[in-house]
Design a protein around this nucleic acid. Structure first.
Lengths: 210, 210
DNA sequence: CGAATCATCTGCTCACTGTCAAGATGATGG
DNA sequence: CCATCATCTTGACAGTGAGCAGATGATTCG
């Protein structure tokens, strides 16, 4: 377990960093990204308003750390899926369901994860975890023994990019009420699977891209 | 032209609403969604801090009006595309390119459009324009003479939902640096077209969804 | 053991924001 | 001509992120 572990032992003088991340998550979940307040997160952790500074620098730093932890959790969930014995299409269905489930269970967090460019462009650790998500998706799709992609624009990655785009696009569209605005809980796995069925996930792309 | 027209005639006592929308767009473009300030928008329009209240209620109202105008502009651009004589795949390519171009030319605005749930859940005019985007996409995809969808969950809409999800997902992923983080201008139409080629946009879906 | 050093946390201040209530200003219309 | 109404200004308030000086306490080192 890293320094972001959920349960703190000593508290008041101890692992404030993890405690702040926890209280920040509560505030974020209750108030949303727009209503988030670093002072309130500090208040709920029982410390002064400027205590977070030493651990996260500023508010963007706190949110970046929160988003990084969220990416790590998502990656862990995707990585721990049992995909042995499934064909490519079943694996995609499985991954997509987990992705959508994570977004539905952690809406405010999922929002934040895709809103970081407006807070911090240069969070390298965060970019790493984001990239890890792509690699996990690609490995799940093409199998453990397939050759890993040489670079971000490797043509072999195209099907993975397509799956990610489709699943991620559907998730955000649905959460923003663009799919079925009358439905309060719009994440519909059946619809997503029907759309995924229209996607050719097996073969390599026809031509490379620069 | 509606009341959101860009050029104001009388100004100081006249169409402040449009002037505020214009200055708000400038502030939004310069500072991004997180750095947006209603006071600064009022300042740039040459009026007092609480002048926007009468026209938009509060800050969320201003942003909602801005997002609504943006949806209208996007819809107009998609609607004015010349698609006659093209087959389904060419039409999709054309629409996708326009969608991505709009997002690239209006990044802050595009961000805002998909961040409204955290500002205002009940902007009916906005939801209308968002829905109009779907109908335009669907009509472009299935042709002018196809029967319009009966409801939001009409199975005939599935290919349109899939195209929208793929294109929208790719756009947001690319803008967030998830596709090729080293590329500062990541919107690559070739990659998008290659992904769209993997999608079966012609036939009806195999089975309906609830 | 004592003292210096360092990490951590507090208190205070500042500029800025969104929102509200009360009042000016000016156009419209009876 | 005057009342009414829409529009805009002024002045206030609580809340926020950020910076600075200093208290507190743990650690390390002479």
């Amino acid at each position: 377990m890293g320094k972001d572990s959920l349960t703190g032992d000593q508290y008041h003088h101890g692992n404030l960093r993890a405690a702040l991340l926890d209280s920040a998550l509560v505030v974020l979940t209750e108030k949303g990204v727009a209503g988030f307040s670093m002072r309130e997160a500090a208040r709920r952790a029982g410390v002064s308003q400027s205590a977070p500074k030493h651990h996260f620098g500023d508010a963007r730093g706190l949110l970046a750390a929160l988003a990084t932890r969220a990416y790590r959790q998502l990656c862990d969930r995707l990585e721990s899926l049992e995909l042995a014995g499934l064909d490519a299409r079943e694996r995609v269905t499985c991954i997509a369901a987990e992705y959508v489930a994570f977004a539905g269970e952690n809406r405010a967090l999922f929002d934040l994860m895709w809103r970081m460019t407006q807070f911090d462009f240069t969070a390298s650790e965060l970019a790493e975890e984001k990239h890890r998500a792509l690699l996990i998706l690609d490995r799940s799709l093409r199998g453990e023994d397939a050759e890993p992609p040489a670079h971000d624009t490797d043509p072999a990655l195209v099907p993975s990019y397509a799956v990610w785009s489709l699943v991620h696009g559907y998730t955000t569209l649905a959460l923003e009420g663009a799919i079925d605005s009358s439905n309060p809980d719009p994440l519909n796995s059946d619809l997503l699977n029907t759309m995924l069925a229209l996607l050719d996930v097996s073969g390599p792309p026809r031509k490379s891209f620069p």
